[in-house]
Design a protein around this nucleic acid. Structure first.
Lengths: 203, 203
DNA sequence: GTCTATAACCTGATAGAC
DNA sequence: GTCTATCAGGTTATAGAC
């Protein structure tokens, strides 16, 4: 019960601003986002944003860290679950991660590009070490000592995430609409484990 | 000989600005780039930028289209080369595309994120249709009528491009340095065709 | 806590001298 | 073609009333 007692009827002003910030930042990126956009989307006044979060940058860092934590929090527990076999981990990651991406389609691109523009701002605070020293990595090294485990993990993540990264390009080009994209993604949930297993066995 | 006759001793002012713009836009993105940054990087005055290119947006569109054209120009000719088998195309694409990416490491992330933020600005001018109706797609449909060819093409591109997309994250996190990254990429040039063949055969 | 008004600053673009 | 100086507009952040 560490939370402050508060009426739970509606979103607090603070939460309304955060929700709006998530939306606008993710859509337009840090630099192109104006604090006025966030205030308007939140239905509050510009001054309140600074009252609650001090500055645009502070608010961005908060949103960024929350988003990144949820992104990594989705897969790292699976990678470190010692009760799962290598094949089970691959299946679990592609399933859970895809489910997460369907609800946050623009997130990977957002995080990657913001990190790329301003590297050691956030990255050092992320639990990436946990992924690189995970049980999944150890299982890979045992199974295929001839391959670099990080390279293999990039394959799994790449197959899962990449469709969401080129989605804007392919959709604008008319390659598919929202419905067809969902169908492809649903197919891939079953296919990615098969593909990964085929890679695991390939010599 | 359509080019204008001109002294070829040094870069023209126009080219110096374009070179600087490529650098700064690719690194910081459109919104975070200030025309002053470009002018400074080019070693010229701010006013000259507008003299040659009228506006920041016009200059950006120019750079963007050139970059995108080179990106797509690298793979589309291979995809449409009717003398190559499916396996040969896969090998060629991963080789040529990787070589291109090694010289333009930040390019995919840049293009994807700028497109994502401002969709139908550039995408319609890109030769994406050429890739989607390519000979490569037809070969895939013949070989594996049970799979969606675009989904399969995303696998090839994802395996090739994704390491460059997460490179900033993994490098900042200390997963590897520039040299180790190059080693991984070199390995993958030989591995990606094997992995893709394994996927092609997997049932 | 929430608002309006405004300060302080930054950025793209141009005018005009050379 | 190239420069300096400056304008016009927009943006973050704060002061101060309620």
């Amino acid at each position: 019960m560490a939370k402050k007692a508060k009426k739970e009827t509606d979103l607090s002003t603070e939460e309304k601003i955060k929700a709006a910030a998530r939306l606008v930042f993710t859509k337009k990126g840090y630099a192109a986002t104006r604090t006025r956009d966030i205030a308007e989307a939140a239905g509050i006044n510009l001054a309140l944003l600074n009252y609650y979060f001090r500055s645009k940058e502070k608010l961005f860092e908060l949103i960024m860290m929350e988003k990144a934590a949820s992104l990594f929090g989705t897969i790292i527990p699976i990678l470190n679950d010692t009760t799962l076999s290598l094949e089970q981990k691959i299946t679990e990651v592609s399933q859970k991660y895809t489910a997460f991406l369907l609800e946050n389609p623009g997130l990977p691109l957002f995080i990657m590009s913001e990190v790329g523009m301003n590297p050691n701002q956030f990255v050092n605070k992320l639990p990436i070490g946990k992924a690189l020293e995970s049980h999944f990595i150890k299982q890979l090294q045992e199974r295929r000592p001839d391959l670099h485990p990080v390279s293999f993990m990039m394959n799994l993540l790449g197959l899962t995430v990449f469709p969401f990264i080129i989605k804007p390009v392919l959709m604008t080009a008319g390659a598919f609409n929202e419905k067809a994209f969902s169908t492809r993604i649903e197919e891939r949930i079953a296919l990615i484990p098969k593909w990964m297993n085929a890679m695991l066995k390939s010599k």
